[in-house]
Structure formats: C-alpha cells, structure tokens
C-alpha cells in the first residue's frame, strides 16, 4: 500500500509538478473550447447548407462527413503535422490538433443536426411557408428550435468523446495535460504526474459527462 501511494500519490512529486500540470490543464481547456466552438458552428453550418438541397454540394458534404467519421483522428494528425512541412507549410502543433478535431466534430455534428432537421414533420414547413415566412426564417424560428431536444443529448456525448482526443496532442508535442505529465514521469521516474493528469481530465470532463446524462434523462422523461 505504501509503495502504491509512493508511486501514484507521491507528495513531493505533487509539490514539484503541480504548476506544470496546471499549465497543461489550461492548454487542454483552451484547445477543447476552440474545438467545441468551431466544430459545432461548422457542423451546424454544413447542415444548414444541406437543407438547400444543392445536389453537388450535398454529395460533397456526405463525403466529408463519411471520411471524417471513418478516419482515426491520429492518422490525420500525423499526416498533417509531419507531411505539410515537407511541402513548405508548417503549422504549429496546437493548430494541427485543433484543425483535425474541429473537422471531426463538425462531421459528427452535421450528421446529428441533419437528422434533427429531417425529423421535423413536413407540415411544420408547410404551415410556416403558408404564412409567408421565408426559408431561413422557417429554419431559424420553426424547425431548429424543435430539433434541440432531440439533438442535444447525442451532441453533448459526441462532443465529449471527440474533445477528449486533445490528449493526442502529446504525440506531436502540444504541451497539454497528458504531455506535461508524461514528460514529468520520464524525468522523475514516478507515476504521480500521470495520476494528477488523470485527475485533471476528470475535473474537466466529469461535469460535462454528468450534464450529458442529465440531458438524456430529462428528455427521455419528457418524451414518455
């Protein structure tokens, strides 16, 4: 037991590494927020474009979504991070990770928003258009508000699952939470920083996970 505490919760290691861990946590939060905001916005934008029913554009969106759903994010991170400099385009590692994760989130979010829009019955469109509402107004005031309840729970869960991938930053040297921890582990030959990192992730993501389950229950109850 003592050995366990010594390896995973070593007081002197905690004392010497917590500032590093904290700065890593800040970068993780920063990265996560950028991914969430841009990814969701772009996903919604794509779903809205899709409502215009322009065949070529819709096909392009479907291909984009499918590819980003099928490719592991780490594959894209490696291709962009190690490939682009060789053609003369160097992006900072933070930007690479942000770009990849935001695109992945956008793809999943587009699917979810689109399914939500499809689930609104045609009569709602008919009613709104028959009173003279424009297409954008119908979307904004009649259709989208009705999708929130259906869309929010899967959207939150998906967002968490994708945002957690900020930990992949450690592979390309983004000084985020996991990266700070693994660096400290190899310096100190002690697993405590890893434990601190795990706790850091829990602090960031457990509240969001709980929020997601709460949403799910609330909306499931309302439906019944």
């Amino acid at each position: 037991m003592e050995r366990f505490v010594d390896t995973f919760f070593n007081a002197s290691v905690i004392a010497s590494t917590w500032p590093k861990i904290l700065s890593g946590m800040l970068i993780t939060v920063e990265l996560a927020l950028s991914v969430v905001v841009t990814g969701l916005a772009f996903g919604l934008f794509l779903a809205l474009i899709r409502t215009a029913q322009i065949r070529l554009l819709n096909a392009a969106i479907v291909v984009f979504v499918d590819v980003l759903r099928a490719l592991p994010p780490l594959v894209m991170v490696l291709i962009i991070y190690f490939g682009l400099p060789n053609v003369g385009l160097t992006l900072p590692s933070f930007a690479v990770l942000w770009l990849v994760l935001a695109a992945v989130l956008a793809a999943f979010a587009e699917e979810i928003f689109w399914a939500g829009i499809l689930s609104v019955r045609r009569g709602q469109w008919d009613a709104a258009r028959s009173t003279g509402l424009t297409f954008p107004d119908t979307l904004a005031f009649v259709v989208l508000p009705q999708t929130i309840r259906m869309v929010l729970p899967p959207l939150v869960n998906r967002t968490i699952a994708i945002t957690k991938n900020t930990a992949l930053g450690t592979v390309i040297g983004v000084p985020e939470l996991l990266n700070q921890a693994t660096t400290a582990v190899s310096f100190l030959s002690n697993a405590t920083p890893l434990m601190l990192a795990a706790i850091g992730y829990l602090i960031i993501f457990v509240p969001v996970v709980l929020f997601g389950s709460w949403l799910e229950q609330r909306f499931a109850f309302r439906k019944a």
Partner: peptide, 23 residues
C-alpha cells in the same frame, strides 16, 4: 462508467502501460 467516459482513452492506456510498471 462516468469516470471512464470522462478519461481520454490515451490517458488510460498510458496509465496502464507506463504507470503500472512502477508498482
């Protein structure tokens, strides 16, 4: 389940792979 859904899988993997050997 809430803990494992909050923890990035890479963190979990490194914890198991590089953390456990210390014990």
């Amino acid at each position: 389940t809430d803990l494992f859904r909050a923890l990035p899988p890479l963190v979990l993997l490194i914890l198991v792979y590089s953390g456990l050997p210390f014990t």
